[in-house]
Each structure stands twice: as C-alpha cells, then as structure tokens.
C-alpha cells in the first residue's frame, strides 16, 4: 500500500492516491500554454515554496560553513575555506565518537523495545469487538502524542523523580529509593520509556489502517478450513501488515541518527553530559552554545549524509525482500 505514483513516500498513514498514472503533458499544449492554463495552481504553491526555499534550502547552502573556519564578523561569504579540516578534527574527537555511540545504542534499544509495542497494541485493539470501547481506548492512547516533550518529561519527573510519587511511596514504606531520572547508566531505557509513553499509542494508527485493509473473506475462508485464531494471525494478519512494518522500519532507520534530541536537551542537566549527548545535541552544544559554528555544522552535515545513506540502504534491502519501502523501484 505504500508506494504511490509519484515515486515518493506517502505519509505512512495515508497513501490514497488517484490511481491514474499522471502522464505529464497537457493535450496539445506547449510549455507556455500549460503554464498559462495552470497559473493559479502554480501561484498557490508559491508561499510554501518560498518558505521552504528560505528556511530549508537556505540552510543547505549554509552547509558550506562546514568547510570553512566560520568567523562571525565575516559571515559565510567572507570566512576562509579550510577544506576538510573540521571533519578531521571531528573524527579525532573522542567526544564526537561518544555521541555517535550513544545515538546508535539508543536507536538500537528503541528498535528492540519500542518498535514492537504499537504492533501488539494494534492487534489487541483490533480484537476489541465493541466499537464504543474501542474508540474510547483509542482516544486515550492517542492523547499523549499531542503533549510536548516538556510536559512528558515533567510528568515522568513527578512520577519517577527523586521527589516524585514513586520514591515518596518507597520512602514512606522504608524501601530503597530508585533514582531513574538522574541515573546515566539507565538513561537510554528512561528515554525509551518516555518515547513509548508518548508515541506508542499514536503509532498504532498506521497498523490499524493496515489491519482494516485486510480482506475479511480471507479470515472466513481460513476459519472454514479449520485454522484457529493463532494460525490466522500468523498466516493472514501478519503478512497483511508486512508492507507497513517494512515501510516504518525503513523510515526509522533513516531517522536513527536524529533520535531523542528534545528529550536529551531537556534532561541534560539531570543525567549529565556523558549520557545525554547524541549527535544532534553535540552539533547544538558545540555549534551554538559553544559558538563553534563550523564545527557544529560539520557534525550536522555528517549526520545528514549518513542518515540519507541509511535510508536509501534500508530501502534497497526492502526492495530485495519484495516490498515497496518508501519509494517504488
């Protein structure tokens, strides 16, 4: 269900497309004639194009500073070029490798601990027969997606922090307290738990859609042939969700290096810099807080390039397995 006619990703939850392969070219009109005919359509896209040109493509040109020794008084135009010096410095900086390691470990932890949860939740929800109960449960589990990270971290702090509900309870009952909010060793699990609390419920939207798209006569036929519920789950439900699962895995890999930025910024003070440094915070802290513009830009560029490479590689693998991934071959 994933790939659409323009050869690009549909938003995961929404891939409805007119099936017509749009042959570009109006009948019998030349370039100028088509522009004249569609001028209002083109004008409508302009505000978005201009905003993206300034705030998305503008920074892409700013990536040039990664090859400069940026100097705030001379700006991008006047700063001297230093070739790959920033990258050489970056690759010999143990703090950079530490940030990269943190990023990869956190991504791996979330892939294992987070990714399956929405799938299981969706199956569970889908098995609720009463539509009233189901929409009530849906309404509740979607809700945390709409809270910002500030709220989520505050809620976790009030529940699990040193002065939070859990530790108050433990203290009142003379048990050892559990300082998970400030423990750097378990920080990756804390961050994952927060991500699960905030996003796992919303994550089921895509899977519920995939489940709803499975032809129910398949189930009926299987049941008539004597397949019990587990066999039906294995042979009909899971294959029916395969395309979406692969698509989300591909997108997740493309996002693997961008994980957890706001959470880390918010909790850096609490757990300390060593545990709470990922590539994004590294670029932020060196580039902007530390005012080392070129160095931070280089770290960001490294992340961007590797992310695109990961996305394309994951998509290749998806194609090998006969799935569409985020674009069709």
């Amino acid at each position: 269900m994933a790939a659409i006619d323009d050869g690009v990703a549909a938003p995961p939850a929404l891939s409805s497309q007119p099936s017509a392969k749009a042959a570009s070219g109006g009948r019998g009109l030349n370039w100028w004639g088509r522009l004249k005919r569609d001028r209002s359509l083109v004008i409508m896209t302009l505000p978005a194009v201009i905003l993206l040109a300034v705030f998305s493509y503008g920074p892409m040109f700013g990536l040039i500073t990664a090859f400069q020794a940026y100097d705030i008084y001379n700006g991008v135009a006047g700063s001297p070029f230093v070739g790959f010096d920033q990258f050489q410095r970056l690759f010999s900086d143990p703090l950079f490798w530490h940030a990269l390691e943190n990023t990869l470990v956190l991504s791996a932890v979330q892939l294992v601990l987070y990714f399956p949860i929405p799938i299981v939740l969706a199956l569970l929800l889908n098995s609720i027969m009463s539509s009233k109960v189901r929409s009530f449960v849906q309404a509740i589990v979607y809700l945390p997606h709409f809270f910002g990270w500030v709220l989520v971290v505050v809620v976790f702090q009030e529940m699990l922090g040193g002065a939070g509900a859990l530790n108050m309870f433990l203290r009142q009952h003379d048990m050892a307290t559990w300082n998970i909010m400030t423990n750097p060793d378990t920080f990756k699990y804390l961050v994952t738990a927060q991500a699960v609390w905030k996003e796992a419920g919303w994550g089921i939207v895509v899977f519920l859609a995939a489940l709803a798209a499975i032809d129910s006569s398949l189930y009926e036929a299987a049941a008539a042939d004597g397949a019990n519920r587990w066999r039906r789950l294995w042979h009909i439900t899971l294959p029916g969700m395969r395309g979406v699962i692969v698509l989300l895995l591909v997108l997740r890999l493309g996002n693997a290096l961008s994980i957890g930025f706001e959470q880390f910024i918010l909790q850096r003070l609490a757990v300390g810099r060593d545990a709470a440094e990922v590539l994004d915070t590294f670029a932020y802290n060196y580039g902007l807080v530390g005012n080392n513009i070129s160095y931070g830009t280089a770290a960001g560029l490294f992340k961007g390039i590797v992310s695109v490479a990961l996305l394309l590689a994951a998509n290749k693998v998806a194609h090998k397995f006969g799935e569409d991934g985020f674009y069709r071959r």
């Binding site: 522009l35 001028r39 083109v42 993206l52 920074p59 892409m60 700013g62 990536l63 513009i293 960001g300």
Partner: peptide, 25 residues
C-alpha cells in the same frame, strides 16, 4: 494531476523531509 510542474515542485518539497541543513546553518 497533469498540472504544470507539479512533479518538480513536489520533489522540491519532499527532499526537505529527508535532508536539511541542520541546526546550526
């Protein structure tokens, strides 16, 4: 569908979903 330049404009937009200048730029 079939409108003038809708494909290049769409590509122009979608590229920004997967690659950007990053925080500092």
């Amino acid at each position: 569908s079939r409108s003038f330049a809708h494909r290049p404009i769409l590509m122009f937009m979608i590229v920004t979903m997967f690659f950007g200048g990053g925080l500092v730029p």
